[in-house]
């Protein structure tokens, strides 16, 4: 599988990563090489093999729907880049 700079730009947009135009060809080369490595998987027929998502094939453990944590908004917002009046600040989304 070979990817070009335009495809890298599209993937970067999906990943919300600003990639400089001059860096796109190098990423395209790296990604193509990684996908070639990954393509070795196709040498094996996996028809009927159950996909393995968890090493112990364990189900997620449910818990009771109860409040277990105290509110620590101020503590957690102390490390936020921009907050005001308990709110996280971002550029204006709606005019």
């Amino acid at each position: 599988m070979s990817l070009g700079p335009a495809e890298v730009a599209k993937i970067a947009h999906l990943a919300r990563l600003a990639i400089r135009e001059q860096d796109a060809p190098a990423y395209a080369r790296n990604l193509s090489a990684i996908l070639d490595l990954v393509a070795q998987m196709n040498a094996v027929d996996t028809t009927g093999v159950a996909p393995m998502a968890h090493p112990l094939d364990m189900a997620q453990r449910p818990r009771a729907d109860e409040v277990t944590e105290a509110n620590q908004r101020e503590h957690f917002q102390a490390i936020a880049p921009r907050v005001e009046a308990g709110l996280y600040l971002v550029p204006k989304v709606i005019e």
Binding site: I11, R16, L17, A18, I19, Y27, N30, L31
Partner: peptide, 26 residues
Amino acid sequence: LLDLYTRSRAEGFGAEVTRRILVGTF
């Protein structure tokens, strides 16, 4: 907002992390 996301992430992550995020997204 898009500029905030994409530039913060591009400035914050190095090349190998960027590569793996791109591969994973793809």
